[in-house]
Design a protein around this nucleic acid. Structure first.
Lengths: 163, 163
DNA sequence: CTCCTAATAGTGCATATACATTATATGGCG
DNA sequence: CGCCATATAATGTATATGCACTATTAGGAG
């Protein structure tokens, strides 16, 4: 019976996409963190700043939505970027929203980070193949989209009682 | 020129596998967290307990390696599982390692969590297709493996000066 | 048998993440 | 023109993550 559990556990560990998604995200984040470390930048900070640069003047809520991150998480992450004077945030609490943009020093930092990212990206492409990497990225995006409607709020609707 | 940056930023945001991996991991983790919430369990805790159940008596280092997580992270995560009496850890500091196993109450909790996981898994399979989900899981595993040798320690070897 | 090297666990610090809740301001309704 | 419902931001609490460093101990060298 112990052996049955053991087998069941092994099967789940081997099949769970959530576990694998977290492990993969950790691994690639460690890699990018190491790449950006000389610049004093983390992988997530780089992603956020790129997101802001791609849509200057977007609000915090809009960025949170496009990044698939909770607004309270983003609020704090933006605060650390503001402390370092890489990002400017205009407007505070209230209905008009907080508009985000890069500062001059933020742009300068990104201009140094871009070649680092490209080098990391080229290394990955070389390892996995460009096609494989593209396909994987799209498949991950599809999973994120597929799982979104199942998220916390909308979950009670889809829920059957469960045995 | 501003527009050039904007375009470059958009391309990077759309191409970066790290960003997508994190967003996907966040999304599926939110989903599983919501599923397990009634049991007082998080997605990561579930994964760790399944990993322990799949290899009872394995050491902390072994589990950390198979989960692709830093040993210091795992050390703390295991501590919260110990506090709840779901996991037993024998042996402390020193060269013999810390051997992990599930307690009776940990096994009982997992027996309640398994049907929840299976339901969540079936829902995902239905949304994406079983094949697609399997392929995605394997591709993510390949990326994790490909990126591992590029991790912090071994990074300085592969590094070219960079422009 | 003793010592000491190296493998292992844990701490300090910082960032990241999200739910529950509170604080705030604004756009529209009366 | 004033009020207020609601969208938005931020805070409280808890977990998760990893690097730099410290503490501990077992296994081997002598």
């Amino acid at each position: 019976m112990n052996d049955v559990d053991r087998g069941a556990f092994r099967a789940i560990a081997a099949e769970c996409p959530g576990f694998q998604a977290r492990a993969t995200a950790r691994a690639i984040t460690r890699y990018h963190n190491a790449c950006f470390r000389p610049l004093g930048l983390t992988a997530e900070q780089f992603s956020l700043m790129v997101g802001i640069g791609a849509a200057e003047g977007a609000t915090l809520v809009e960025l949170a939505l496009s990044a698939g991150v909770d607004t309270t998480t983003l609020s704090r992450n933006i605060q650390t970027l503001e402390k370092r004077s890489w990002v400017k945030a205009e407007g505070g609490r209230g209905r008009s929203g907080k508009r985000l943009s890069l500062t001059a020093s933020g742009r300068h930092l990104l201009s140094e980070a871009l070649p680092v990212w490209r080098h990391a990206q080229a290394t990955l492409s070389q390892r996995l193949g460009d096609n494989q990497l593209q396909l994987l990225r799209r498949a991950m995006a599809e999973l994120a989209v597929a799982v979104e409607p199942l998220a916390p709020n909308t979950l009670e609707d889809a829920g059957q009682p469960l045995p």
